[in-house]
Design a protein around this nucleic acid. Structure first.
Lengths: 208, 208
DNA sequence: CTTGAAAATTGACACTGTCAATATGGCGCA
DNA sequence: TGCGCCATATTGACAGTGTCAATTTTCAAG
C-alpha cells in the first residue's frame, strides 16, 4: 500500500478502470471518453491524467484487466479436465467474445490499445504459450509444427468471432451435421491438426 | 449524368472519396476527419454534408469502393485460372490486406462502416457467394457443408490477417515445411475441406 | 506543526462532427 | 434573352473531445 490505496479518492486508478468497463459495456468503446469515465468515478475531467498518460493508456489498462480475466476463466475451465484442453481454451475466448462483444472488440483495437505495452504484451505471450502447451500435450500431431497449428486455431476462432460481430455471417449451423457453425469449424480444423501418428515440436511463433 | 457531374465543383462526391482514401493510407482511419477530407478536396468544412449524411456515410462509401476494387482484383486473378480458384480468392484478399493495412482495417470497423448499408451489403453477399461458387466447383467435398467450408476458410484468413495487423503473431514460417505461415495455414485447412469422395450442397450462411 | 510532493481541480486551447442561416451558381422555362 | 428556382457550397456557431498549464487541496514524513 505504499503507493496504492488511501489519498483523496482512495485508489482512483481501479475506480477509473471499472467505470471505463461499465461505459464500454453500455455504449461501446466510443462511449469511453476520459470525461465520461471521470464523471462516472465522481472526479473532475482532468483527474485521470494523474493515473493514465492519455486515453490509450487507460484503455490499455482496461484491456490488460480483461485479458487477465480471460486467463482466469481459461485456467478454471481447464482445471480437472484432461481431454480436449486446447478446444476448451478456444471455446472460453469465443464464449467471452459473444457474451461481451464490446469488450472483445476493444481488445484488438490497435488504435485504442497498445499491444506492445510492457504490462500487456507478456499477457498475450503467456496466453499464446498456454495454447501451445496444451497442443503439445495432445497425441498425434504427425509432422505438424505446433506453432502453425496454434496460429491456425486461434486465427479461425478470432476470424469467425470478429466477422460475426461485424455483421458478416449470421448465426447458423452446419447443414449436414446440424451443429452450431462454431463447432462445425472446430470439427473441421481440429482433426486436420493431428492426421496420423505422432511427433511434436516446441513453440516460438509470437515475437520470435 | 442527370445527377452526377457538372455544378460548382464537378462531381465533388468522387473527389471526397479519393481524398478520404489518401488520408486513410497516410494516417489511418482516425486521420479521416470530415474537415481534413474537405480541405484536401479544396472545399469548405461543411461541403461534404451535401453528399454524405455524416462521417459514417462517407466512410461507408469508401469501404464500398474498396470492396469493389477487391472484387475486381479477384475476378481478374481468377480469369483463365482453373485450379485452386478458392485459394486465389482468399489470397487476393490477404494480399490486399497486407498491402493496404489501413484500408483493410477500415473495411471491418463496424463503428465507422455500416455493413447493412443498402449499397454495401449486396457487395458482401456477392463476395461470399462467389467463394461458395468456387468451392462448389472443386471436386471432393465429401459430406461437407459448403457454407461451413466457406466460413472456415474466410474466418481463418481474416483472423490471421487481423491478428497480424494487431501485432499478435510476428511474420514467421512453418518450421517443418518452411513455407510462409499463411501458406501453412491454408495447407492445413484446405485438405480438411475435401476428405475423400464427393457430394455437394448449396449456400446460404450469410443473411439466411 | 511544518512542509513538500502527490493528487485533484479549474480553466483554457485546438480540434472534432454537425446544424442553421446565408450566399452562389447553373439549368429550365418564359 | 432574362427570370427564378433549387441543388450546391460557405460561413458561423455549438457542444463535446483530449490534453495541457496553473492552482488548490490533501496526506504523510520530518
Amino acid at each position: 500500500m505504499t503507493r496504492t490505496k488511501t489519498f483523496h479518492h482512495g485508489n482512483l486508478r481501479r475506480a477509473l478502470i471499472e467505470a471505463a468497463l461499465n461505459l464500454l459495456d453500455a455504449e461501446g468503446s466510443a462511449g469511453v471518453t476520459i470525461r465520461a469515465v471521470a464523471a462516472k468515478a465522481g472526479v473532475s475531467h482532468a483527474a485521470p491524467a494523474n493515473h493514465f498518460r492519455d486515453r490509450k493508456a487507460l484503455l490499455t489498462a482496461v484491456a490488460k484487466a480483461e485479458f487477465e480475466q480471460i486467463s482466469e476463466h481459461i485456467n478454471s475451465g481447464l482445471a480437472s479436465r484432461t481431454k480436449d484442453r486446447a478446444r476448451i481454451f478456444l471455446d472460453t475466448i469465443a464464449n467471452y467474445a459473444f457474451a461481451h462483444p464490446n469488450r472483445y472488440d476493444l481488445l484488438w483495437r490497435s488504435d485504442l490499445v497498445d499491444h506492445a505495452d510492457a504490462d500487456l504484451a507478456p499477457l498475450l505471450d503467456s496466453l499464446y504459450a498456454s495454447l501451445c502447451t496444451e497442443l503439445a500435450r495432445e497425441p498425434n500431431h504427425a509432422g505438424r509444427d505446433i506453432d502453425t497449428v496454434a496460429v491456425a486455431l486461434w486465427s479461425m476462432m478470432h476470424g469467425y468471432v470478429a466477422l460475426r460481430l461485424s455483421g458478416m455471417f449470421e448465426p447458423a449451423e452446419d447443414r449436414v451435421t446440424g451443429e452450431p457453425r462454431y463447432d462445425a469449424l472446430m470439427s473441421l480444423l481440429l482433426p486436420a491438426a493431428k492426421p496420423a501418428s505422432s511427433r511434436m515440436g516446441k513453440r516460438s511463433a509470437r515475437k520470435p
